[in-house]
């Protein structure tokens, strides 16, 4: 049996542009590390099995499930959470568009939706409806029925990120 000491690790990661160095138990999930070690509770945990997408964050620019990643996986990585989408207090186009088009109701899927949509538009500023569906396939929303989510993303399309 390994000692308690060897069951923790020190990780360095950059979250929303800010460097962090912290010691975490090996078993700490990234979602818990973000929420409880770093206090970034914008990222939500829904299903815990990588299906619902509420916990989506960007790791080196790519959407991943933070409930399926150990915190140690983020060592040396760049993480963007929903808290890092707006810049200097100004909402990103995607965020404003979700508000204007009713792309959410309860808001629990919204952090995952917003970061995935931002990554989509960064990769493809003018996605077709099918491309939107392909990207957003892994983000479940129980409130909207998705139509207004598609419109929210379409509404934010056309230009690169304001950032």
């Amino acid at each position: 049996m390994a000692s308690e000491k060897t069951m923790t690790r020190t990780i360095r990661l950059r979250v929303n542009g800010k460097e962090h160095s912290l010691e975490v138990p090996s078993r700490r999930l990234l979602v818990d590390c973000l929420r409880y070690d770093l206090g970034l509770t914008g990222t939500k945990e829904g299903c815990s099995v990588g299906v619902c997408g509420a916990c989506t964050v960007l790791m080196d620019g790519q959407p991943i499930s933070s409930c399926l990643a150990l915190a140690v996986f983020a060592d040396g990585k760049e993480i963007v959470t929903v808290e890092g989408i707006a810049r200097e207090g100004k909402l990103d186009r995607v965020q404003q568009s979700f508000i204007d088009h009713g792309g959410f109701q309860c808001g629990s899927c919204t952090p995952g939706m917003v970061v995935t949509a931002r990554a989509l538009l960064d990769a493809n500023p003018n996605p077709s409806q099918d491309e939107i569906k392909e990207w957003m396939l892994g983000n479940l929303c129980r409130c909207t029925g998705y139509y207004q989510i598609i419109e929210s993303i379409q509404g934010a399309a056309g230009e690169a990120s304001d950032a």
Partner: peptide, 17 residues
């Protein structure tokens, strides 16, 4: 848009968890 909109799209909205 919802009055809670800005809080919800930035992750500032507080849910019980």
């Amino acid at each position: 848009g919802q009055v809670e909109g800005p809080a919800k799209v930035t992750g500032a909205a507080t849910f019980t968890a």
